[in-house]
């Protein structure tokens, strides 16, 4: 036996072992690096180049000075906030009830969340087009009931955009919230009730704080997803509600728009990064536990 009691040998083998185990995650990390991280960095790089390929901040200046781009950013924030609030107002009570149902019934009702979650956004957007169109079911009903004489223009406005997006976002809130609510120990609630807390106090002082991890994870997911949402606003907004995603797509369709498109992309990235940092620090969001 050597003086160092095999320390060098053990250290070397421990390193090899660690490398082998890290190697298992390497292919996945490589794919994500190549197809997500590098492209985002590429956008970052292109955003500070002019048409000739020289360094410039001009793209950001255009962003800040052109009224159209500013109004897009305002619209994006307004719609995202509205969608988030409406989704929470609908999603929280719904999930609250689902989490208290007996498991067999809850499984069936959860299909009502899982099914839209797994259905293509395009199918869902199309469904709202069909419902809200001039010859759609809603207009047919309104005319039949005599509420209006002629079909109303229900599409191509903020309301239609928000409705379509909320339909997409509610499952994003319900899934993490359901997992959190199911894990709440009802012993706490019985304890609160036995200590004299009424139903309202028990809910706000005990249940609601315990459901916060799921609520914050879901709210964060909704807001971030809404910011970059593209298909639903483009179709249901019909050019009258332009969000940043659509603006980027339009800008990229013209060669000259590369610079503005990438600058808008960087703006979206910055907003996402700030929100992510806020969620992880303040809301203690744990990504590994999100669905």
């Amino acid at each position: 036996m050597t003086d160092d009691r095999n320390a060098a040998v053990h250290a070397r083998e421990a390193r090899h072992e660690r490398a082998r185990m890290l190697g298992l995650a390497l292919p996945a990390l490589a794919v994500i690096g190549a197809a997500v991280v590098v492209p985002i960095l590429w956008v970052l790089y292109l955003s500070v180049l002019d048409v000739q390929g020289h360094f410039t901040l001009g793209n950001y200046l255009v962003l800040a000075t052109e009224g159209a781009n500013l109004s897009v950013i305002v619209t994006t924030l307004k719609v995202s906030l509205l969608v988030t609030v409406v989704s929470v107002v609908i999603g929280y009570p719904l999930t609250y009830l689902l989490a208290q149902l007996p498991p067999s019934l809850a499984t069936i009702c959860m299909l009502g969340i899982l099914l839209p979650y797994m259905t293509s956004v395009l199918v869902r957007t199309y469904a709202w087009m069909v419902l809200l169109g001039r010859r759609g079911i809603v207009n047919t009903m309104l005319v039949w009931l005599g509420i209006t004489d002629a079909p109303l223009q229900l599409m191509f406005n903020t309301t239609a955009t928000v409705i379509g997006m909320v339909h997409v976002m509610v499952p994003l809130l319900a899934l993490p919230l359901y997992a959190t609510m199911r894990a709440i120990d009802h012993g706490f609630l019985r304890a609160a009730a036995s200590l004299g807390a009424g139903p309202v106090a028990t809910f706000w002082r005990v249940y609601f704080p315990l459901s916060l991890p799921g609520l914050s994870a879901g709210t964060f997911l909704i807001f971030v997803t809404s910011l970059g949402f593209f298909i639903t606003p483009t179709v249901l907004g019909g050019g009258r509600v332009t969000m940043i995603g659509q603006q980027i797509a339009t800008a990229i369709a013209t060669y000259d728009g590369f610079g503005v498109a990438t600058a808008l992309g960087v703006g979206l990235l910055a907003a996402t990064a700030i929100l992510l940092g806020f969620a992880m620090r303040v809301l203690r969001l744990d990504l590994m536990r999100a669905p």
Partner: peptide, 12 residues
């Protein structure tokens, strides 16, 4: 360590 599931830092 005896079972070989954990690698010791030193020793034989």
């Amino acid at each position: 360590i005896l079972g070989g599931f954990v690698r010791p830092t030193t020793g034989d």
